[in-house]
Design a protein around this nucleic acid. Structure first.
Lengths: 125, 125
DNA sequence: GGCTGTCGTTTACAGGCGTAAACATGCGCC
DNA sequence: GGCGCATGTTTACGCCTGTAAACGACAGCC
């Protein structure tokens, strides 16, 4: 199990998940203004991500181009599973129930979930 | 926004959510063995929870009885919302879709979700 | 009325995180 | 061939967390 990705690190990963490989400069350009981060901050985060083996760096002349090693799929699955395990006994239905009770399901959510479930139902899959 | 509850602190909260008020001793008795924590650890966690106003303490003779101030519902909602916002654009359906794609929905989940959705559908509410 | 055990409060300390400055290095230009 | 700029690497520092030990207060026993 690789070391956990922190919140600030995830922000950098999101950039790389959208498009990779990218240089540190490009990453800074995208994430810096939005998060109010300076160059040094992004560099540190990239280094920590390298140490955690969540990204790789390929030399490109004088600089490096970074790419994710950890996929967003995998990350999202792990995070979600963690929360589900901790708070909902590991299952999805109780989470849906919780949001349902709290009136946090939008119409869009509802119809989309209905469609998903229907798909699974008659779904061979 | 009150300070965030950490993972170890949540473990203590879970005990209090199950039953409260409780003395530190009772809390230790329940959580200590399971987590391998000593007395000092639980005391520190209780103090941090007090400072974060997540629990309250009512004097009972020589000791205190602790009770949650933060409800589990609220905590769960905040945590879930945080994850949904960070990873699924704030909506529930994409999470369900994600688990569905990853084949992580049990039959039980599926039928329960179908029921919940049906309820909402014909449900006035 | 001290001694001891029982609680709660304070302090500790290492490791992670957010945020960056300082430092090192090497290519490209004058 | 030295200087400066662009990049990456190292170091910093305060706060939070996990995990406790040390300390303090007080009630009850002898």
């Amino acid at each position: 199990m690789p070391a956990p990705i922190s919140e600030a690190e995830r922000e950098v990963m999101e950039v790389l998940w959208r498009r990779a490989p990218r240089s540190a400069e490009e990453i800074l350009a995208e994430v810096g203004p939005r998060q109010g981060w300076q160059e040094g901050t992004v560099k540190s985060l990239l280094n920590r991500l390298l140490r955690k083996r969540a990204v790789k760096a390929a030399r490109d002349g004088r600089r490096y181009l970074y790419s994710p090693l950890l996929s967003r799929e995998r990350y999202v699955l792990e995070e979600s599973k963690g929360l589900l395990d901790r708070l909902f006994g590991g299952r999805v239905a109780p989470l849906v129930a919780h949001f349902s009770e709290q009136h946090k399901l939008s119409k869009k959510d509802i119809s989309e979930i209905r469609r998903l479930i229907a798909e699974l139902d008659d779904g061979h899959d």
